[in-house]
Amino acid sequence: MNMLNPILARLKKMPRAALITIGLFVALGTFAPWLAPQDPSAQNLLEAGLGPMAAHWLGTDHLGRDTFSRLIIAANTSLVSVGSVLGIAMTIGIVLGTIAGYHRGWVDDLLMRIVDVGLSVPSLIISLAVIGIVGPGYWTMVLALALAWWPMSGRISRAVAVSIMSKPHIEALRVLGASPWRIYFGHLLPGTIGSVMVYATADAGTAALAVATLSFLGLGIQPPTPEWGQMLVDALPYLESDPRQVLLPGLALTAAVIGFNTLGESIALNRIPKPLTRRMLAARRLEVASWDKENSDA
C-alpha cells in the first residue's frame, strides 16, 4: 500500500487533460477487442479506400479493412508492447539501480558508467543494432527496446535508493542490526519502485513512439497485427489519393504521446514557482483590503 500512496498523491497534482488522454488510451488499449466494431483484419478489396460512412465510421484502407477498428486494436498493440518494454526495462533498472545504491563502491561506479554510455546512445540505434544482429520479430523488438530503456530507470532508481539509504531511520535499522535482506526488501525496494513508476509512466510516451517508429520501419510489429506506425507506413503510398489513412494513425499516436509528455513535463517543472493567477491575485487583494478595514474600525 505504501507503494501506491506517493503515486496517488502525485496524481492529484497532475494536469487533468493529460490524465484524461492517458486514461482514454489505457481504456481503449485494454478493452480494444470488445470495443472494435469489426474484424480489423477482414479485407474486402471491393470496399478499399472508402471515405467515412455508416458501415465504416472512419472509412477503409487500401485493402478495404475498417480503419476505426484497426485504430482501436492498434491502441491495444501499443499498450501491450509499451507495457512489456517498460516492465522489463524497469525490472532490470530497479534491480541494478537499487543494488548500486545499496552497495555503492565499485559496483556502483561500474553500473553507472554503463548507464552513462547507454544513455548517450540514442535508443533507436541500440534497438536497431540488436534487431540487425538477431533478426526482426515481436520479442526481439520488445527486448531490444527494453535494452535501450533500462539505463534511465537504472539511474533514477539508483538516485532514489541512495537518498533512501541515507535517511536516518535506515541508518538506525542498520545500527540495530537489521538484516540486509530486511532493509533491502522491506524499505529500499518498495520506496524505489513507487518513485520510479511515476517517472516510467511519464516516459511511456517516448516508448510508444519507439514502438511505432520500429513498426514504421518494418522492424517492429508485423502485419497483419494493426499498429499506428505500421498503418501509417502502409498508407503512405496512397498519400495523394487518400491522406486520411495517413493522418488518422498519426494523430492517434500523437495524442497519446502528448498525454504522456504533458505528464512528464509537469513532473519536471513542478519545482519552479508559478506566478499568481488572476483569480488568486484578486483574492489576495481582498485579503489586504480587509486588513485596512479592520484597522480603520479599530
Binding site: G205, G229, L239, P243, G250, L253, N261
Partner: peptide, 22 residues
C-alpha cells in the same frame, strides 16, 4: 514545443510531404 516533442518524426515527414509537395 509540446506538439513538436510529441509528434512522431515519420508523421512530421509525412505531413511535410503532404503539405509542401502534394
Amino acid at each position: 514545443a509540446l506538439l513538436g516533442a510529441s509528434t512522431p518524426t515519420f508523421f512530421v515527414g509525412a505531413l511535410m510531404i503532404y503539405g509542401f509537395s502534394v
